[in-house]
Design a protein around this nucleic acid. Structure first.
Lengths: 249, 249
DNA sequence: CCTTATTGTAACACAATGATACAATAATAA
DNA sequence: TTATTATTGTATCATTGTGTTACAATAAGG
C-alpha cells in the first residue's frame, strides 16, 4: 500500500491492472463557507492532480474508486457516485507522468503501460470536512483542500473534471438529498442554507428555504446552539434517513 | 467496415483498439405506444445483445459510441448520452463471445483480447423509429426493435443495462426536454402524452399535461390533422429548440 | 342535423413557492 | 433590571404551478 506507485512503475506491462483505464475522484468538502476539493501535489513537480488510481484486474470499478477515496480521506461509508467518462483522444499526454517518473529517478521505456492512452472514469464524493484526514499517496508531497474558486494549476484536464463534477452536484442537489454529506452530523439551518447557496452559487430566501427543508421530514431538531452571538440561538438539526452511500446500482 | 468483426477476431492482441473497454448502446424508439430498443441477434446463436463496439486507439470514446449508433441506425445527429459504466468483476464471462467465435468456425486462443475482462461504457440514444434503418453488424443475423416489456433473453448483463438506461431516461425526461427525439417531426399532443406515459409508466392528466407542455414555449403549432375519426381534429406540433445532440461536454 | 368521440381550454381547488413582516430570544451595554 | 441589537423561527399574503372537473368546439358518420 505504501509503495503502490513504485510497484506500478516497475511493472512495465501493467500486470494485474486493467490497462488504459483510470479513476479520478473529485472529493468535495465544505469549510468556511467555501466548497473545497482534495488535491495532491506531486514530488519534484509543480503539478496538482485529483486523487486517482487504477483498477486491479479482479476488482470492481466502483470498488476501486472507493479504495482510492478511502485511502485519501481515511474515511469509510462515504457518498460516492460515478458522473462521467473522460475519453477524448486529446486527453492523451504522457508527458506529466513521464516527468513525475523521471523526477523519481526512473526512466520509463516508451511502451510503459502508464505512458499509454488512458480513459478516466470520473467519480465525485461528498465528505465531512472535519472528519476527513487528507492522506498523500506515495508519489505525492501533499494532499490538501483547495477552494473551488482558488484552484492551483492542474494536471491534464483535471480542471474540467472538477467543473463537470460540480455541475453534476448542482443538478443532483435537490433531487437526491446529498448535501448533508458535506456537513457535520449536527448543523444549523443557517449552515445548511449557506451550503446550498455555495453549491448552487446563488442566494436563497431564508424563510422559504427553512420551510422547504423542514417540510421534507428528513431533519430531526436536536437542541439549541448557543453561539455567543447577541441574538436568538438557532436549533441544531440532524439528518434523518437511509444513510445513502450511493454507487447507484 | 463490412468485415469489422473478422478483423477484430483475427487480431489476437487487439492491436488498434483500446483494450478491455467496450461500448454498449441502448437505442430507444417509440412505436405503437410502446418503448422499443434495438437488439442484435448473433448468427448460430440464440443470444440477443445490445449494439456495441470497441474504441479505436485514436478515437474519442464518445465518437466511438456515435459510430456504433450511426452504423446500426443509418442516422446521424441523434441524441446520445453516456449514462453509466458497468465495471463489476462479476460481468467477466468470456463464454458467450467464445461461443460466437466458435460458431463462426474460429477457435480463439485463451489470451485473445476479446476474451479478456471488459469494462463497458453505457450510452443511450433516442431516435425517430420511423427514420431509423436497423442494420445488423457483420456477426449478427438481425437487428430489430423489441418492445421493452417483451425482451428476449439477453447476453451477459445487457438486461440490467437496459433497465438502468430506462431509469436514466425517466429521470431526465422532465429536466432535459429530450422526449421529442423519439417522435416524428410532427406530432399531436396525444402522441406526446402517450410517449410520456409510456416512458414514465404512469397515467398523466390530459388537461394539465397539455397546459404544461404549451407553457414551456417549445412547441410550434402547425396545422390540424384530420385523422378520419368522428371527432375534433387535433393540432400538429413541431418541437422548437436548439437541436440538442448531447454528449454533454 | 343529430350523435359520438375527442380535443382545446376555461374554471376552481389546492399545493408550492416568493416575499414581507413580526414575535421570540441570546448576548451586551446602560 | 432594562433597553439594545442581531438573528432565528414562523405567520401571512401574493403569486405561481398543478390536480380536477367541466364544457364548448369540432370531424366524421348515420
Amino acid at each position: 500500500m505504501n509503495k503502490e506507485f513504485e510497484q506500478q512503475e516497475s511493472n512495465i506491462s501493467g500486470e494485474g491492472f486493467l490497462p488504459g483505464l483510470a479513476i479520478d475522484t473529485v472529493i468535495f468538502g465544505f469549510h468556511d463557507n467555501q466548497l473545497k476539493v482534495l488535491l495532491l501535489s506531486y514530488k519534484n513537480s509543480s503539478l496538482y492532480a485529483l486523487p486517482g488510481g487504477f483498477i486491479h484486474d479482479n476488482e470492481d470499478v466502483n470498488q476501486a474508486a472507493r479504495r482510492v477515496l478511502e485511502s485519501r480521506t481515511a474515511l469509510t461509508n462515504i457518498y460516492l457516485e460515478q458522473f462521467y467518462v473522460f475519453g477524448d483522444y486529446s486527453r492523451y499526454d504522457p508527458t506529466p507522468l513521464k516527468a513525475i517518473m523521471h523526477a523519481r529517478g526512473y526512466t520509463a521505456p516508451d511502451n510503459h503501460w502508464l505512458l499509454k492512452r488512458f480513459v478516466s472514469i470520473g467519480y465525485y464524493a461528498l465528505v465531512d470536512f472535519t472528519k476527513a484526514v487528507p492522506t498523500p499517496d506515495d508519489i505525492s508531497d501533499s494532499c490538501d483542500w483547495y477552494s473551488l474558486d482558488d484552484l492551483p494549476v492542474l494536471m491534464q484536464d483535471h480542471r474540467q473534471i472538477i467543473e463537470k463534477a460540480l455541475q453534476t452536484l448542482q443538478n443532483n442537489l435537490d433531487q437526491k438529498l446529498i448535501g448533508f454529506n458535506l456537513l457535520t452530523d449536527e448543523f444549523t439551518m443557517g449552515d445548511l442554507q449557506s451550503l446550498y447557496e455555495t453549491i448552487l452559487n446563488k442566494k436563497l430566501l431564508r424563510a422559504a428555504f427553512q420551510r422547504k427543508m423542514l417540510s421534507l421530514g428528513i431533519l430531526e431538531r436536536i437542541a439549541k446552539k448557543w453561539t455567543g452571538g447577541a441574538h436568538k440561538a438557532p436549533y441544531l438539526y440532524r439528518f434523518i434517513s437511509n444513510n445513502v452511500t450511493a454507487d447507484t446500482f
